[in-house]
Amino acid sequence: MTFCVIGLGRFGSQLAKALLDEGFEVIVIDKDDERVSEFSEKASGALILDATDEKALKEAGISEVDCCVVSVGQKIDASILIVMHLKTLGVKEVVVKAVDELHAEILKRIGADKVILPEKETAVRLAKTYRSKRFFEVLEVNPEYTIVETSAPNRFANKTLKELRLREDYGITVILIKRKSPYLNEKGLPVMKEEIIVSPKGEDFIFENDILIILGKEKDLERLLKE
């Protein structure tokens, strides 16, 4: 899958680096030659051009990429114009970083496939994390389902997943169990080793101090951990 990142500010540059680290082909575009030069060796293409120029985008072959992410900071008019050009050129998926809700609504109306508000999404995620002291980390999969990392409630200790009936009674799935177990190292000294059980089965036990990664609807997760 090939990505194009337009705008190499703080968000755009971090996204481009993350995509490259994941092994994707990435083309980066910015008017600032210093920002572009940072990616000259790693990116599939590092282009210095004005993305508001439709002809320049066309000549750069942007229509061939699978997904284009537009992150041009506070330049609302520029982002709108770039999205219009990308849609005209037939880019398969256009993702845009918006400044605020009004900007996001405009971008959606002109054809952006996905609009992100990083500050808002980070704030909402943090608020959800603190809403329940049991939740260490929260990841919203979609508006209905959420993945949370939480310590196992005391009543789970020394019971199997089958005995707990989490899926049957709560519609919740445990997708990973993390625990620390003591063992002797090469020098014969006791140390703690982390054990990870991915996709645990019904006969797997939950022990005291286990950390669970669970998937479910928000209301069901809250109900489970409040009981």
Rank of each mutant, 00 (worst) to 15 (best):
M1D: 14
T2S: 13
F3Y: 15
C4I: 12
I6Q: 05
G7K: 06
R10E: 07
A16G: 04
L20Q: 09
G23F: 12
G23K: 07
F24N: 14
V26T: 14
I27L: 13
I27K: 11
V28M: 13
V28F: 14
K31A: 07
D32Q: 14
R35S: 06
S37D: 01
E41A: 05
K42V: 08
K42C: 10
A46L: 00
A51G: 04
A51H: 02
D53E: 09
A56K: 15
K58R: 09
C67T: 13
C68A: 12
S71N: 08
V72C: 09
D77E: 10
D77K: 08
A78G: 03
I80E: 04
T88S: 13
K92W: 09
V96Q: 12
E101S: 10
L102N: 05
L102W: 13
H103C: 14
K108A: 11
R109E: 09
A112S: 12
D113M: 02
V115N: 12
P118R: 06
K120I: 14
E121L: 09
A123C: 03
R125A: 07
L126F: 04
K128G: 01
T129H: 04
F135V: 07
F135R: 03
F135H: 08
E137R: 01
E137V: 00
V138A: 00
L139N: 04
N142V: 00
I147R: 00
E149I: 06
P153S: 09
P153G: 04
R155C: 09
N158T: 14
K159G: 05
L161K: 05
K162D: 08
K162G: 08
E163R: 06
R167E: 03
R167F: 08
Y170N: 03
G171M: 11
S181Y: 14
V191Y: 06
E194P: 02
G202C: 02
D204V: 03
F207N: 03
F207P: 02
N209V: 06
D210I: 09
E218G: 09
R223G: 01
L225C: 05
